[in-house]
Design a protein around this nucleic acid. Structure first.
Lengths: 224, 224
DNA sequence: ACTATTTGTGTTTTTTTTACACAAATATAA
DNA sequence: TTATATTTGTGTAAAAAAAACACAAATAGT
């Protein structure tokens, strides 16, 4: 029983708020890495699919509901877990702002959002997993409008713009960005406006998933 | 012991010859799927890394030496293996033409190359894995010069061109393709020429891995 | 009513991509 | 040995896409 490969899942859950990217971490209550921060995750049960395990662990440990989930990579190095041969399939997930405030009632586990710019010391090889997840997020937003999963249903265009600058870590030309994004026809401009502090009120937009699905089926890729 | 998740690796090994893409398959000797064709692979041993398992299985089952190896995806559906809960991490590999002729001495296992256009009925969910591998290959060759792993060290430019048309399944403009590829500066033009049947003799080229590595480090992506 | 702040918009320049045809060098057949 | 078929090698012009760039409109706060 000891000489058995065990399988875990680990999730890199991204949240976005105030032009900052966050990752959801939990504090480990037991050894190894007791009291260190780690990615939510745990052992896959017998007759449980990988994704089911991810959803179960996220629910148990953080109570959060994810908006988008994608497999990242499977780590099988022998030295990654002091408990023995533990293989981990990692996932990356996006949550919308309304799920951002954690529900601490769900469990006794300590869960917290950490800015990607200010991560604590992490258990296992979780730093490596996070690094990979961030690279994947960066490369994905460029050719898939994943960003919406991190925004509210209705949002001013500037939100999208800020999200992209945050994820990509560089400034983008507002006019060209807007032109290009709108030309994709995956955004519906609403008639509502919203005023956020000073400045001209912004039009609200909505992502149109059908339009996007169609675009994707036609093999049309975009590139921001 | 029965109620234990088991972990396998499966490899989609690509070979290229005469403007055709091939995949290496083995004939299963035991149930389940006895006598069906399947991807080379098998159970990961305790204290064996995933890649080690891939190399071991490939050696045991096919005797082949791969040139490039990359993780593809981990399949964890509960219905994918009649033997129970078996999770498989799949890899995709490329071999050079000199490894194309199989060495049948290596084992009693039947191994054979199959054209990607003419695959037999496959065991497990291996057809699904192959489909994914082909998509990955197509999308990768566009922004990484992986193709070289499928060609000889020295090759006429037309080989590269044919390889791309084969993998992408569409014709490409010879002049533009050559122009673009050469502008990347990852090919060294040799002084040797080679005559292949009729027609003007072709200059030979060589891939320059250092140049490519540098290009990659500088974050320069190309796109064919 | 003045100032600061954010949104919204069009044109020009530059770069990249695409389309396209013929001469050079060889093998083969007559 | 000559003619024919076959493959390699090459440049330019047109079209499309990307990048650069600045100011008016609408609001909040003072």
């Amino acid at each position: 029983m000891k000489d058995q490969i065990r399988l875990t899942v680990d999730s890199v859950v991204f949240g976005y708020q105030n032009a900052e990217l966050f990752i959801l971490l939990i504090k480990r209550k037991y050894a190894p890495y007791k009291n260190d921060w780690a990615l939510p995750g745990g052992f896959v049960l017998y007759n449980e699919s990988l994704e089911d395990a991810v959803y179960r662990e996220l629910k148990e440990e953080t109570g959060i509901e994810v908006n988008y989930l994608e497999q990242l990579y499977t780590f099988g190095n022998l030295d990654r877990d002091p408990r023995g041969h533990v293989v981990s399939t990692s996932y990356f997930a996006l949550v919308s702002p309304k799920s951002f405030t954690l529900n601490p009632t769900t469990d006794a586990v300590e869960a917290e959002w950490f800015s990607t710019k200010d991560l604590p010391k992490l258990a296992f090889d979780h730093e490596k997993i996070i690094t990979l997840a961030m690279k994947r997020l960066q490369s994905k937003v460029i050719y898939e409008p994943l960003g919406f999963e991190l925004l509210n249903k209705k949002f001013p265009f500037s939100d999208l713009e800020k999200l992209y600058t945050t994820i990509l870590g560089r400034s983008i030309d507002r006019r060209n960005f807007r032109k290009k994004f709108l030309s994709l026809n995956v955004l519906d401009e609403l008639k509502e406006k919203v005023s956020l502090g000073a400045g001209r009120p912004a039009n609200l937009f909505k992502f149109n998933p059908e339009r996007y699905k169609k675009l994707k089926e036609e093999g049309i890729i975009f590139e921001i």
